[in-house]
């Protein structure tokens, strides 16, 4: 085919994107992965160290705890948000009074930053300031609600704040899905005499499968990136009992000055995400291609 001069302007238009992909994405990833195979500490050095950093990383209790916390947070936050968000959407879809107001109230946390979310919940859950203090003030002197300062339970406070932040998002996605369902289908089910909850369970949930998937993907992105919320809510503590991988990497990069270990951790995170993501992206991309034909 003849190359027309007009093509050059196309590439000119794509230049920012190409530069960003080549340098900011691929370049930095290669760099990060590269450092993880050296024994760099404060500054990067070019001394190849094989998998030493990775061996050290998986021997570090704090890293293992943070991985475990990410799994706990991911499973619980996504699970609870999906269920709560779906139930809220279903409830809102029942020709409710003040639907607009309720929708606004349920979704507004999603507009708020993790920093603000974390701070508020930290105050509410703080035993000497928030719920525990208030309930004791009502005369229940022995009331205890100090999850946030207990090692075993601090991560569940992060889950709570995470659900508060994200359930509205799920609700919005699900409500859009519900509103997209053919109204004749509801009518058909009423003619068939199917009980509403059965209809929801057997018919609506399968129809909303794509909505559940995109909500899950969206929420899992937040799980991997989880950093600000933990930082202000628990500071990763008590100790490092509620630490998460993203915070681990940041701490070792900038406070602990151990970039070898930090990049090894980042690379591990990257590989995990890729393993989960690639099949999904592939399927999604493939489906999109088929649709075009």
């Amino acid at each position: 085919m003849k190359q027309r001069p007009i093509r050059w302007s196309v590439y000119a238009g794509l230049t920012p994107a190409i530069l960003i992909v080549v340098f900011a994405y691929i370049g930095t990833i290669v760099w990060t992965v590269g450092i993880s195979f050296t024994d760099s500490r404060m500054l990067p050095v070019a001394r190849f160290a094989g998998f030493n950093q990775y061996i050290r990383l998986f021997g570090t209790e704090r890293w293992l705890t943070s991985i475990q916390n990410m799994v706990i947070f991911g499973v619980l936050m996504i699970g609870i948000s999906l269920v709560l968000g779906f139930l809220l959407a279903v409830a809102l879809d029942q020709r409710i009074r003040a639907e607009g107001f309720l929708r606004t109230v349920i979704l507004y946390p999603y507009a708020i930053s993790f920093i603000v979310t974390g701070l508020v919940w930290q105050w509410i859950l703080n035993p000497t300031l928030g719920i525990e203090q208030t309930v004791r003030g009502w005369g229940f002197e022995s009331f205890r609600f100090d999850w946030i300062i207990q090692k075993e339970t601090a991560i569940y406070c992060v889950v709570l704040a995470g659900v508060w932040h994200a359930a509205g998002l799920v609700m919005a996605i699900m409500l859009a899905g519900l509103r997209g369902i053919d109204p004749d289908l509801w009518k058909a089910s009423r003619i068939d005499g199917i009980k509403p909850w059965r209809f929801y369970w057997h018919i609506v949930v399968p129809i909303l499968r794509p909505s559940f998937i995109s909500a899950t993907v969206l929420l899992s992105l937040g799980v991997v990136k989880l950093y600000d919320l933990v930082l202000v809510l628990t500071g990763g503590g008590p100790g490092f009992s509620s630490d998460v991988p993203a915070k681990f990497v940041m701490d070792y990069l900038f406070q602990r000055q151990n970039i070898g270990l930090a990049t090894a951790a980042a690379t591990t995170l990257l590989i995990t995400v890729l393993c989960v993501l690639t099949p999904w992206l592939y399927a999604e991309y493939f489906r999109a291609e088929k649709r075009k034909d």
């Binding site: 900011a24 994405y25 930095t28 990060t32 991997v224 990136k225 990069l253 980042a266 995170l269 990257l270």
Partner: peptide
Amino acid sequence: LPYQVFIYP
């Protein structure tokens, strides 16, 4: 991808 991969470089 997690930001942590890009940050140091």
